[in-house]
């Protein structure tokens, strides 16, 4: 009995966002179907993966993570180069030191560090603030200016600080991460607010605030599925690619941090922790993530190998 292949007739696709400048550009989004359903529609760009770089030496990262970056953790430029060596499509520079609880680094100093990192690598950058909304607006404004015209991705813009960041992105030619707290209505609303300031929709990337495997991953998973279905059925204000800032979530879980001796029943720590990051990414790729920010180079390598496989045609 012949089976008639069931194909959905979607009416819209996810916007394609271009990051960086020629010849070093990374394109994300553009899908006209659900993730990896090549039999049904197009997935013109493979999901891109960034590794994270901090502007100050991290504390509390487990040894299995820091050992991959031995000697460069206090030097963002060298660290970024290391990430490129490891095969990252982009570098995600997180300006952690700007946090008032850390070094309270000034926006000007942050911009200098961002410039130095940008000049040292040829992959596009994602530049994140420290998570304090007010400070991030000041910092990202200066960063946008210092890197004017490079077409990078800056974030995270929230309901509180999107105006300053959107304006800076418009003036200096960057793209914006619109961040919402696990809520599809707030997600859409922020996209509307940003586009109302006349930043075009293909310069916005959605951050739904993902959790790690075992720590609420299902909430972001379903929001991402709903976002993708919204995009494919014609909602332009949900038709932006999704970024998954998962490294920061994974590496604070006890499954990633407990040593083999502390949790022998969970198996070898290195294998378990890397898999924790890989499997978190694999699940989000199935839900519709287009851009992944990870931490461990081996997790990056394994996830990219997985993507290679998923990008092969499964047309009938």
């Amino acid at each position: 009995m012949a089976v008639t292949i069931a194909k959905e007739r979607w009416t819209n696709n996810v916007a394609e966002v271009v990051l960086g400048t020629e010849p070093n550009i990374v394109k994300i989004g553009g899908e006209s179907t659900l993730p990896f359903l090549h039999f049904e529609g197009e997935m013109p760009n493979r999901p891109a993966v960034a590794l994270e770089v901090w502007d100050m030496e991290p504390t509390g990262w487990p040894d299995i993570l820091t050992s991959a970056y031995a000697g460069v953790l206090n030097d963002p430029v060298a660290w970024a180069k290391k990430c490129v060596e490891y095969g990252a499509d982009l570098v995600c520079l997180t300006l952690v030191s700007a946090h008032p609880d850390n070094k309270n680094t000034s926006p000007e100093e942050c911009a200098q560090v961002a410039k130095a990192v940008a000049d040292a690598v040829n992959v596009p950058l994602i530049i994140l603030g420290c998570g304090v909304e007010e400070k991030d607006a000041q910092v990202l404004e200066k960063v946008a200016e210092a890197l004017s015209g490079r077409n990078y991705l800056l974030g995270c813009a929230t309901q509180e600080n999107y105006k300053t960041i959107t304006a800076a992105c418009m003036v200096h030619g960057h793209n914006i991460i619109a961040s919402s707290p696990l809520d599809i209505n707030l997600e859409k609303q922020l996209n509307i607010l940003i586009t109302e300031m006349n930043l075009t929709a293909n310069r916005i990337v959605i951050d739904p605030s993902v959790g790690a495997l075992g720590y609420g991953i299902e909430y972001a998973y379903s929001i991402m599925e709903r976002t993708r279905i919204g995009a494919l059925t014609g909602d332009k204000m949900m038709a932006m690619p999704v970024i998954c800032l998962l490294g920061q979530e994974v590496w604070k879980t006890k499954e990633a941090k407990s040593t083999t001796e502390e949790a022998p029943e969970w198996g070898n720590q290195e294998r378990r922790a890397i898999l924790w990051e890989v499997i978190t990414a694999v699940a989000f790729a199935q839900a519709g993530g287009s851009l992944f920010v990870m931490r461990h180079p081996e997790a990056l390598k394994q996830f990219r190998a997985h993507i290679d496989k998923m990008m092969q045609s499964n047309a009938y």
Binding site: L213, G214, G216, I217, E218, Y221, E255, E265, W266, G267, N268, R271, R272, L275, W276, I279, V282, A283, Q286, A287
Partner: peptide
């Protein structure tokens, strides 16, 4: 994630199984 009723694995390493069981739970 995508609809399997049963997943047959060759590994019995807890480092492999724990993430999968957690994902299933989620």
């Amino acid at each position: 994630c995508k609809y399997a009723g049963i997943v047959v694995l060759q590994t019995a390493d807890p480092a492999d199984i724990l993430p999968l069981i957690t994902l299933r739970l989620n």
